[in-house]
């Protein structure tokens, strides 16, 4: 942070739009500064190298009768200077990168905690009141720390606007924090809530590129709390079928189960309820409430024949009320 002195701040900000999405968090600013510092150093060297190269290409091109001139084959001063100067520059780069890295990676003590569970290919953000949402909602101007764990393979949570990214590794917790800031209001007044894309950047299989959701930044803590309260009361505000539809769309069911009878990865929900299922081990059963509940909590217990056993478990991520709503929703898909 203290290295900002080095950086032509003004210049950085005007070009930022060309290189980067808008700055959405406190760290974004320092990352961009570091980036532009390196960029200018690199541009200088690149112009130098390519300029000299072009100059020599023109000036010393082969012409009949002109032989190459014999010059010294080495010059210690010259060679040392182009070893030492880049070395010093890289030390500066390391230092500024290092200091802002520490800022990015040390979550402040007082921050709002959100638990994240990543699985193929959905995100689940669990708020302190127990509500789970597939989009990340945060209040503006407040430190937020994500504690992340993965259910299957490695994922990586990246919010380009916040310039921060961390792998979500199965078998351990990783952390990531940020503090959203209001964007510059050059392009007119800012509309809240703000939305930024959030994506998985570590390759995680078939639908890796669909593991994209959004960050919603609420203007004040009050707005955020209101949203959270409202969302958590889903069973009050909506009929079971509507709530079920919400879970179907937001929890990732939609990725594998269609509503129109087509087969994506798993069986379609159309006409599922009450039908007879044949399982991989040859047994059969009726798709009733118990069966659906078990399939959500223990997906590998009864896998319908000819489908791969790939469904992740939703245990701990859906309450019984949620599951009931989903069952009602499936029931409604005639």
């Amino acid at each position: 942070m203290q290295m900002k002195l080095f950086i032509p701040e003004l210049l950085a900000n005007t070009v930022a739009g060309f290189w980067f999405p808008s700055q959405g968090s406190t760290v974004a600013e320092s990352v961009d500064s570091v980036y532009f510092f390196i960029l200018w150093v690199c541009t200088f060297f690149f112009v130098l190298i390519v300029g000299l190269m072009l100059l020599f290409m023109v000036k010393y091109r082969h012409r009949p009768g002109v032989e190459a001139e014999k010059t010294v084959t080495h010059n210690l001063t010259l060679e040392l200077s182009w070893s030492v100067i880049p070395t010093l520059l890289t030390i500066v780069m390391f230092w500024i990168g290092f200091t802002s890295y520490l800022d990015m990676r040390t979550p402040p003590a007082a921050s709002y905690q959100i638990d994240v569970v990543a699985k193929k290919w959905v995100w689940a953000f669990k708020y302190p009141n127990g509500w789970i949402e597939s989009e990340l909602h945060i209040p503006l101007d407040e430190n937020v720390t994500l504690t992340m764990a993965s259910d299957d393979v490695i994922h990586s949570l990246w919010i380009p606007a916040f310039r921060t990214k961390m792998d979500v590794v199965p078998g351990r917790y990783t952390q990531e924090w940020f503090k959203a800031i209001p964007p510059s209001d050059e392009d007119g007044p800012v509309k809240y809530p703000l939305e930024y894309p959030l994506m998985c950047s570590e390759y995680c299989g078939t639908k890796h590129s669909e593991m994209v959701t959004k960050v919603v930044v609420h203007e004040t803590r009050g707005d955020f709390d209101k949203w959270l309260q409202n969302a958590a009361d889903i069973h009050k505000n909506k009929t079971p079928i509507e709530a079920g539809e919400y879970f179907y769309k937001s929890r990732g069911c939609i990725l594998c189960h269609s509503l129109d009878g087509s087969i994506i990865k798993g069986p379609s929900f159309k006409g599922l309820f009450g039908s007879e299922r044949t399982f991989a081990d040859g047994t059969t059963g009726i798709a009733n409430e118990n069966y659906i509940r078990q399939s959500i909590l223990e997906p590998q217990a009864k896998v319908v024949a000819n489908f791969p056993p790939v469904m992740p478990t939703f245990k701990g991520q859906l309450t019984d009320q949620d599951i009931t709503a989903i069952i009602r929703f499936i029931e409604a898909q005639k």
């Binding site: 509940r293 019984d320 009320q321």
Partner: peptide
């Protein structure tokens, strides 16, 4: 562990 309200399926 959960007080399942509607049905007790398992």
């Amino acid at each position: 562990t959960k007080a399942a309200p509607a049905e007790k399926p398992a």
